[in-house]
Design a protein around this nucleic acid. Structure first.
Lengths: 280, 280
DNA sequence: TTTGTAGTCGTACGGTGTACCGAATCAGCC
DNA sequence: GGCTGATTCGGTACACCGTACGACTACAAA
């Protein structure tokens, strides 16, 4: 019983810390570092050495401070990583409003791409789940805004954005993985290239993988110079095709913001009721 | 210099271990466990406790063996995880040959979905990069085979499969993350539900996120009972639209297997030449 | 000056991956 | 039977990790 309660409180505190950073008290000993400085130092470490380079001790050392000192500012390492992610997402540059869905969605995808290129360590942390932080939600909001009035059904908006974001993040992840591997095994890209080509020469069997051989023979696996451009264009084309189809199908419209606030309050009340009385 | 060489050799050994498991020698003391037993024990631990439950000591304990004993069978923990992934991918059930692209691609996506549901820990490891193992390649081959003769251009085949797989894996990842969180904080789904609803009640601001509010008001975020069905159907529809477009555009054809073997040998020779003479 | 309060951080505990190396145990040979 | 070489087993040790505990410090307010 108390185990569950503790874990639940911990989850709540982890969320609260992202929205109400709990500024320094005016009483007592003054702090040597701020929460923001801790998060920034951790991000700096992650950018140069990956997420594995971020330990409580290494961050403290970078700040010239004892390891345990960090715990007055962040609560736990998991909370620190949450804060790092939300801080990184604050760097996202939203697309200018008023453009069409295609430019908006493309800008959104490119913004996400830039974000994951600038903070390559995000590819590692994203494995679990994004923290429910304000700036993460800002990015989600911007993504949905690019599609909400394009004519797609509401569920399609969610699905399409999920597909696009999964694609961009997955792409960034694979690129970041190669770079990290190259970094780990010696600064030099050449060594990494040798190790993967070693695989193709010594183990790849065309007879076992005929389809891949066919695609490889026409260069389908070679990444373009501007790596994201070509696949993203294709992906946006398919979204366009989907929107064309939706316009003739005329799905139920998505209500305007003013209209739906009533329903929002209603649903929230219903949700509270369900929690109070857990019987179906 | 020797640092780089060592790292390169390590990478080679990590790849070799997946293709030539290096059977037990006939001389010397007989082994108490086999490599396959080690991998299976690690997978069993991962299935019940997640990847974090897999440590060299815990695997050894599960086998009734000293921790260091494992190193005669797997070389390192990274190599063990590689082997776990490739072993898990061997469970993939390929789609029956001869069906159309849509059934084949759908079966492929569903097979991947089943794989990631059966081995939820795959969602954690996939963050870095899939190991270059034979069974991983079998799955890739099956995916490409479903699309290679659909009429798409070669590069589109690669992009579409990447999008579909990223979607399925991302979806499985988010579901697995929720289950892992629920498990960590108390066996009971209720506690987890309370913690996320705590967020919606206390921090979500409709004024800051109007578009998400609009979509939420019509239930766009509610997951369907058969969670994968609806989004996957939409995704396959868009692939169909893309294929229709490609059939009228008539992209350059992808050569048959027999034709491209010449080009394959040629390219491989070229590659070796480039490596021998690294000047541009 | 005293008291309360908040921040710092040394110590310690239990965990991790794994390098090192002697002990144990076999096949094959004298 | 005894010996040699090959192979595996696993105890010990080291460096690292996250963090609970509690003594210590430095300030604001009383």
């Amino acid at each position: 019983m108390s185990d569950r309660t503790d874990a639940l409180d911990a989850a709540k505190r982890r969320i609260d810390a992202l929205w109400d950073p709990a500024g320094p008290g005016t009483r007592g000993r003054p702090a040597k570092v701020t929460r923001a400085e801790v998060v920034d130092a951790a991000i700096a470490l992650a950018r140069s050495g990956g997420l594995t380079a971020v330990s409580m001790r290494s961050v403290a050392r970078a700040l010239g401070v004892g390891a345990m000192t960090l715990y007055t500012h962040v609560g736990s390492q998991a909370e620190l990583v949450d804060a790092m992610v939300d801080r990184a997402y604050a760097d996202f540059e939203p697309a200018p409003a008023g453009t069409g869905w295609r430019e908006a969605l493309e800008q959104h995808a490119r913004g996400l791409w830039r974000l994951y290129r600038r903070h390559a360590w995000l590819a590692d942390v994203n494995a679990w789940r994004l923290p429910l932080g304000p700036h993460v939600f800002d990015v989600e909001e911007a993504g949905y805004r690019s599609l909400v009035d394009s004519g797609l059904a509401a569920s399609e908006v969610v699905e399409v954005l999920s597909v696009v974001q999964n694609f961009v993040v997955g792409y960034a992840r694979s690129v970041a993985a190669e770079e990290a591997e190259a970094r780990d095994q010696g600064v030099d890209y050449d060594a990494h290239w040798r190790s993967t080509s070693y695989f193709w020469e010594n183990h790849f069997d065309p007879a076992r993988y005929p389809t891949m051989t066919r695609l490889w023979s026409v260069g389908a696996f070679e990444t373009a110079p501007g790596p994201l451009d070509v696949p993203l264009g294709t992906l946006l084309d398919t979204v366009g095709l989907l929107i064309d189809r939706a316009r003739t199908a005329a799905p139920p419209p998505i209500p305007a913001f003013t209209e739906c606030m009533d329903r929002y309050d209603e649903n929230l009340a219903q949700q509270k009721e369900d929690l109070a009385d857990p019987n179906p």
